[in-house]
């Protein structure tokens, strides 16, 4: 995807930049999503928001004819991006497609609320967003629900949290993480080891069969 050219070239030619959405390629967008997932990076979120907001509004306006509902689609879509960034699968397609499917789901649930008067939020079952392999992921999902892994995770030091989130939620390799966070591979490995031993302590010993 080469999206940058248009806007950038204009700037290079000396045309005054006006208030219009910055243009990013998929690599940059992916970096934003990872930064949100790993560091709750508000700056990255703001950039992502400003990039997608006009697009989401334009598509939403074709389905909802009052601006309140259009804004609701925007807010709800971007709130999910913020809360589910760690579920984004970097190997499974572009950020643009991911955000599009979130918006599609949000619109579907909202239309159902309006038309069928049902607030059953079926979209998550019809188009599951977190598509991951059954197996390890399932066991981990189980852990999450049963042992409040997230709460424990939040208690880790920030630098260890980032590594664990990247490794498990985003399914990044240790090498990818090293590059992303600009750290030596050894540091990543030792942080992960430290974090896991702490998590094990917090979660108790009865998880041994699952982690083996």
């Amino acid at each position: 995807m080469q999206v940058i050219s248009g806007a950038l070239q204009k700037n290079q030619e000396g045309i005054k930049p006006i208030a219009m959405p910055a243009d990013f390629d998929n690599k940059t967008l992916t970096r934003f999503v990872i930064a949100i997932a790993l560091k709750r990076d508000k700056q990255a979120f703001t950039s992502l928001f400003k990039f997608f907001a006009p697009k989401i509004k334009r598509v939403a306006a074709t389905r909802f004819n009052n601006s309140e509902q259009v804004n609701e689609v925007l807010q709800e879509t971007m709130a999910i991006v913020w809360r589910k960034a760690h579920l984004f699968n970097i190997d499974k397609g572009a950020v643009t497609t991911w955000v599009y499917t979130i918006m599609r789901n949000v619109s579907f649930d909202m239309l159902r609320k309006v038309q069928a008067n049902k607030e059953d939020n079926l979209s998550d079952d019809i188009w599951p967003l977190a598509e991951r392999n059954i197996g390890e992921g399932e066991i981990f999902a189980d852990h999450l629900a049963k042992k409040h892994m997230l709460t424990c995770l939040e208690q880790l030091p920030q630098n260890q949290q980032m590594v664990v989130k990247g490794f498990y939620f985003l399914e990044m390799s240790q090498e990818q993480l090293a590059r992303q966070l600009d750290l030596p591979l050894g540091t990543i490995k030792s942080r992960l080891r430290l974090a896991l031993s702490k998590l094990k302590l917090q979660l108790g010993d009865d998880n041994d069969q699952a982690s083996s």
């Binding site: 589910k84 960034a85 760690h86 998550d124 977190a130 999902a141 189980d142 999450l144 629900a145 997230l150």
Partner: peptide, 8 residues
Amino acid sequence: QIAPVPLR
């Protein structure tokens, strides 16, 4: 808060 991995 971050959203938990949905449990199916």
